[in-house]
Design a protein around this nucleic acid. Structure first.
Lengths: 140, 140
DNA sequence: ATCACTGCAAAGTCTTTGCAACGAC
DNA sequence: GTCGTTGCAAAGACTTTGCAGTGAT
């Protein structure tokens, strides 16, 4: 929230009712929200916002460094709250669609080390592992 | 090619001129092709095919295990020739858009080991690292 | 009062689908 | 001859944009 206000004032942007609603709802949620999902969550309340505004605000949250986009295999962009969250990877079960988040600091470190070879300086990564999750293994 | 024929006959599918053109062109190419790009490459030749057919055939190549889809940050699906290719990861430069492929068997192994903990059996993975590539570092 | 923001609807992408003609087996 | 395939154009999903009115500073 602090970061958001700072980003706004630094860029001559305004803190509107809509941006506040969207940011609050978004930052409250763990996990991966699509613009559409966020839009529906907000339409329940009295503070309705347009879908276009949700898209615009999410993009702004990315600029502010509070969110990250990720394009999932279903073709939709999903946004993830990134503030204070440790880096993590995703396991996606091809049977049930479940998304599991994994933290593995060791991997993070290896990434950077191996990519140094290419003179490449990493600023972020997205790792998606597809496979079959435990529960689905068992129910086979 | 062999695999393709086998996949076709196993599933009662037919080997058409179009499928042949698309598969040849696709398997010849290294890297990441979008349906649109493949379509344009093919439209140069005498063997024109419809864009819809390119989409349908690429999907079929995925089923046959010859291709992999990947959704890139630009929102398009890109297909990658996967036959006999070692597993590899991608570095994407946020400045110039360049895509660098990296092989790192050590990482591959670590993946599986760490995800075993979750009872998760991986069948594939997509790792995308974003950052700034060597040339772009230098030109700063 | 200014200038950014919003909502809506229209436009834009990328991809899929319906359908009649076509072609591989 | 059968039944999968093709090409086209229309439809669909997701996202962006134009614009006139609205609102934060």
């Amino acid at each position: 929230m602090r970061i958001l206000r700072q980003h706004l004032s630094e860029n001559g942007l305004k803190l509107t009712r809509q941006r506040l609603s969207i940011a609050e709802q978004f930052l409250d949620c763990e996990g991966h929200l699509s613009a559409e999902e966020l839009y529906h969550q907000l339409s329940d309340g009295s503070q309705r916002v347009g879908l276009a505004t949700v898209y615009r605000t999410l993009k702004m949250l990315v600029d502010a460094g509070l969110a990250q986009v990720r394009h999932f295999p279903d073709g939709t962009a999903r946004y993830e709250n990134v503030y204070g969250e440790p880096a993590h990877d995703h396991l996606i079960c091809v049977e049930c669609g479940r998304i599991i988040e994994v933290e593995n600091p060791l991997l993070q470190e290896l990434y950077q080390r191996s990519f140094d070879l290419y003179g490449f300086v990493a600023s972020g990564h997205r790792l998606v592992i597809t496979g079959v999750c435990g529960p689905c293994q068992n129910s086979r």
